[in-house]
């Protein structure tokens, strides 16, 4: 039986991890390769890098980081941020990314999803959906897709878009609640569940995790296939292995780390 996946996410800018990672005993906590290695050794099922570099130099630095990480870390690596074209996907895959995540460009040009999936296989293509609840109190719940890091509304309904990207051939959806992101209040479980029920492909829940109980809720109430979190792992309070032991004790099927 397939284990539910736990995915730490690292924001990388100009080749360095930002939003501080506090690992005890890690000499350079800003080094994405060291962080990825640490997480995978603790039992992370995959690693996600989100590149937030604004410059061309920053992006080329990222490629070196991806290459070095893929060499040393033998769990799947997803890379997203700034992917505009099939050529960007190809470059990242050639440097060792297993999956490439796209967001704004996919909305502006949905054919990009089909082109990239046709060329590299659905398994390599993740569509990131940033959704914000736009329904008023008492109305039926409705979420709009936002792009450009959550700054621009698109008018596109998030559930409609989720169905569309599956038809276009993406292999996975990374679903982030803009309302919950950074709050520590837990995932938008209604959004997650609606998308997980509708999408034919796996759905990764993201945005709002403040503790292990939110990951549990993402699985049992949100029906997520995988859960992504950043802060709770980076702040050093929660180790991936401890979180997995908690989920296991709660009856969720996870891959427990083998003794080293």
């Amino acid at each position: 039986m397939l284990a539910r996946r736990i995915i730490p996410c690292l924001d990388v800018k100009d080749g360095r991890v930002v939003k501080g990672v506090n690992f005890v005993g890690l000499r350079d906590a800003g080094d994405p390769i060291a962080c990825a290695k640490r997480y995978s050794d603790e039992g992370a099922d995959e690693i996600t890098f989100l590149d937030i570099s604004a410059s061309v130099e920053g992006r080329s630095t990222l490629l070196q980081v991806v290459e070095a990480t893929a060499s040393e870390v033998h769990v799947p690596l997803t890379v997203g941020g700034g992917v505009r074209a099939v050529a960007d996907v190809r470059t990242l895959l050639l440097h060792g990314a297993d999956k490439v995540s796209m967001n704004t460009a996919a909305l502006q040009n949905p054919a990009l999803i089909a082109d990239a999936a046709g060329r590299f296989g659905s398994q390599a293509i993740v569509v990131a959906i940033d959704a914000k609840r736009v329904s008023g109190p008492g109305e039926e719940a409705r979420w709009e897709v936002f792009t450009h890091g959550g700054r621009q509304g698109t008018g596109m309904d998030a559930l409609t878009w989720a169905g569309r990207v599956c038809e276009l051939g993406c292999g996975e959806i990374l679903l982030t609640s803009m309302d919950r992101d950074g709050t520590g209040l837990g995932y938008d479980l209604e959004l997650t569940r609606r998308v997980a029920e509708l999408a034919s492909v796996p759905v990764i829940a993201s945005g709002g995790v403040g503790g292990p109980e939110h990951l549990l809720a993402g699985f049992v109430e949100g029906f997520a296939d995988a859960v992504l979190a950043a802060t709770i792992f980076h702040d050093g309070l929660h180790k991936v292995a401890d979180v997995k032991a908690f989920l296991h004790a709660q009856g969720v099927h996870v891959r427990l780390v083998e003794p080293q």
């Binding site: 397939l2 284990a3 539910r4 996946r5 292999g171 029906f223 296939d225 995988a226």
Partner: peptide, 17 residues
């Protein structure tokens, strides 16, 4: 999924035993 109730998806993606 018998433990969480989530629908099983294709691709079969992740760690299996």
């Amino acid at each position: 999924d018998p433990k969480t109730g989530a629908p099983l998806k294709v691709p079969h993606m992740g760690w299996n035993q």
